[in-house]
Design a protein around this nucleic acid. Structure first.
Lengths: 152, 152
DNA sequence: TAACAAAGGAAAACGATTTCTTTTTAGTTT
DNA sequence: AAACTAAAAAGAAATCGTTTTCCTTTGTTA
């Protein structure tokens, strides 16, 4: 999927979620899609201010939350507790992430062991699982090699 | 382990972590240990204000963070994004949780599938995993039954 | 193009954290 | 056992990041 195709897709994606297609909403998706790693709401806001004279931080937070709720983008749970968002171009269904805390690259983890665990837990406890959080944090291959180069 | 034994343990626990044994620190552990579910920093603060004339919220946050870093208590990642803490009396080693978003009960999940997944991911990506987050959210057996009773 | 629902802006509120200074504590020394 | 000292903890206020509220503007559908 090239850049042009992707941008034309955004409208359809938003419509499916029952969200109106506004220029700002589309811009948020574009900014995230251009990026290979995850971004903070404030970083996205800075990028938006280049294109729009008036754009408030609450608008950015609101949109990111809606898009994440709709599954178009993913929330990254950073160890620093700062909030980040990521546009997944690989896996489209349910999956998890391995994030690099150094360069912010994200790798998809397609196999969801959590799904099978959910059944086990529900059976054992008699409860019902509505959601789960699974994320792996560390250093990607490149950052690991780089770090080893410095310490060697 | 009864109440008295538990309280006498707290001093040793704190010493192991290199933390000084202060009345407030001990009280935070006591308050969390008395509770079967998870508590918010502010709720803990309210409970502390009954015992201490002066106790600031920052003190509570600091202590909770230190205790969580030391592994004495666990951080609960609530879907609402509010921060919660929980004192694990069951499993002492590495494990995960199934939390009830209704009544705040917590069930330990001893088997850590994540540990084996870490190896797979590290091998496949060539990176290094430093931490992971695994948590299951839902309704415990009691709350599920209660809910079914209302809708039936 | 009118009508309605949803989205956006501004300001305020809220939750969590940092900074800086004072107080308290644990371990040592009289 | 009482006093001393270095390190850690606590308080107050400010700050940062995130969210809510309320009112105006915009996008969608008929």
């Amino acid at each position: 999927m090239n850049h042009g195709t992707m941008n034309r897709c955004f409208g359809a994606i938003l419509k499916e979620l029952g969200l109106k297609e506004t220029p700002k909403r589309r811009a948020i998706l574009e900014i995230l899609a251009e990026q290979q790693g995850f971004l903070s709401p404030e970083e996205i806001w800075h990028a938006l201010r280049v294109r729009f004279e008036t754009i408030g931080l609450p608008t950015v937070y609101r949109n990111l939350e809606e898009l994440a709720a709709g599954g178009v983008i993913s929330t990254i749970i950073h160890p620093s507790r700062q909030l980040y968002y990521y546009f997944c171009r690989g896996e489209s269904g349910h999956h998890h992430h391995f994030i690099c805390t150094s360069c912010r690259r994200v790798e998809d983890i397609p196999e969801c062991t959590a799904a099978t665990m959910e059944g086990d837990i529900a059976t054992r406890t008699g409860g019902k699982i509505t959601s789960h959080i699974v994320q792996f944090n560390g250093l990607c291959h490149r950052c690991l090699v780089e770090e080893e180069g410095r310490t060697a």
